[in-house]
Amino acid sequence: MTINNVSLTPHAGEEGTELLEELCDAYADAYGVEPGEEKTAAFRHRAEKQFTRPGFALMTARNEGRLVGFVFGYTLPAGDTHWWGGVQPEPSAEFLEETGSRTWVLSEIEVRRAWQSKGVGRALHDAVLGARGEERATLATGSDAPALPVYESWGWRRVGRIPGDEGDYYSAYDLFVLKLPVSR
C-alpha cells in the first residue's frame, strides 16, 4: 500500500529482528534523542522481547527506501491479565477476560519528526489494526504524552490508569481500548 509517497509493508517477528537497527534509529529520531541513549536502549529491550510474542505484527512505512515510521504489537495470551493488573477504576471481570484472541496490544507507533503530522502515523495505525482479527486493541501511554490527543481523535477510549513498574518511563500509564475492526 502507498500513501503520500510512503509505502506500507507488513512484517512478521523474525523480520523485526532483522530490522531492529533501523527501528531503533527511527525511534530515536521520533523522540529527538541519540540512538545510543537510555530511552532508545529501553525501546530495543522491549522490542526484542515482543518480536516472539503470539500475534506479533510489524508494519513499516518507507519513503524512497528509508524507514520513516513503524507500528507493532502483539496479542494478549489466554488468561493473561497482567496487562490490566492494578488498573483503576477496576473494570468488570468480563472486561479483564483474555481468550488469546480477544485483545491486541498496540505497543509502539513511531514516526520520524520530519514525517510527523503528514498522515503517516494514522496510515500505519489503520493498516495494522485493519488487518487484526481480535475484538479490541489496547495501548498504554503516559497521561501527559504528546500523542494523547491524537489517540483520542482516532477513537481510543481511556479505561483507567495503572502504576508503572520500577524503571519505567512514566510512574503511571493510562490504558486505552479501541473496538476492532477500525473504521474511518
Rank of each mutant, 00 (worst) to 15 (best):
125 H>E: 08
19 L>V: 09
79 G>F: 02
26 A>P: 02
62 R>V: 12
69 G>D: 01
31 Y>I: 11
41 A>M: 15
143 S>F: 10
52 T>S: 15
42 A>V: 15
79 G>V: 06
23 L>S: 05
29 D>P: 07
83 W>P: 00
138 T>I: 04
144 D>W: 11
38 E>L: 14
83 W>H: 06
25 D>Y: 05
54 P>M: 14
148 L>C: 14
86 G>H: 07
155 G>L: 05
76 L>D: 00
112 R>L: 11
86 G>S: 10
156 W>L: 12
91 P>G: 07
52 T>Y: 14
45 H>Y: 15
64 E>M: 06
104 W>K: 01
120 V>L: 08
85 G>T: 00
103 T>L: 05
66 R>H: 10
77 P>S: 06
56 F>Y: 08
43 F>W: 11
26 A>E: 01
64 E>P: 06
133 G>F: 03
61 A>S: 04
118 K>S: 10
16 G>Y: 03
97 E>S: 00
47 A>C: 15
120 V>Y: 04
16 G>P: 09
155 G>T: 03
74 Y>T: 02
58 L>R: 04
155 G>C: 08
101 S>W: 00
15 E>V: 08
25 D>A: 12
102 R>G: 00
50 Q>Y: 12
128 V>E: 00
149 P>F: 09
14 E>C: 07
116 Q>T: 12
119 G>R: 01
60 T>Q: 04
13 G>D: 06
28 A>L: 10
90 E>C: 09
21 E>G: 11
156 W>Y: 15
158 R>F: 07
